[in-house]
Amino acid sequence: MKPNDVILKSVTRVAAVIISTFSIYLFMNGHHHPGGGFIGGLSTASAIVLLYLSFGIEKVRENIRVDFKKLAAIGVLIALVTGMAGVVFGKPFLSQAFGYYDLPIFGNTELASALIFDTGVALAVIGTAVNIILSISEDR
């Protein structure tokens, strides 16, 4: 018996976009406002999980061709490499740098290496969360 999930599917179509947008907002904003790598990553993961739930694993996998195990590893690697960058410049491991730059369109913007580190965190969280959920749901 195939469950009638029209409502779920139509809501998901909209909700996934909203959640993803919101999670990117949370992630980018994390330096000054509530948010950051953990939250951004987790909410992205929840958007992806929602897609899986409503559309099924096979269909989503055709459209999002990402190996989430590798994504988690890449996240950890990014964090590690930003840490090493400090060492290259003679600072202790994981020293973060930041500065203010005048960029076109954005105006005076703060660029911080912490953001790259946070990207690593976010990727690791997304990779792990989705990987766990996927592994369990595949096991039928």
Partner: peptide, 17 residues
């Protein structure tokens, strides 16, 4: 606590499996 929450999630997942 923020890190603890996330680790908690991972631990729960592993224990559950």
């Amino acid at each position: 606590v923020l890190t603890a929450i996330v680790i908690n999630f991972a631990v729960t997942a592993v224990v559950l499996v």
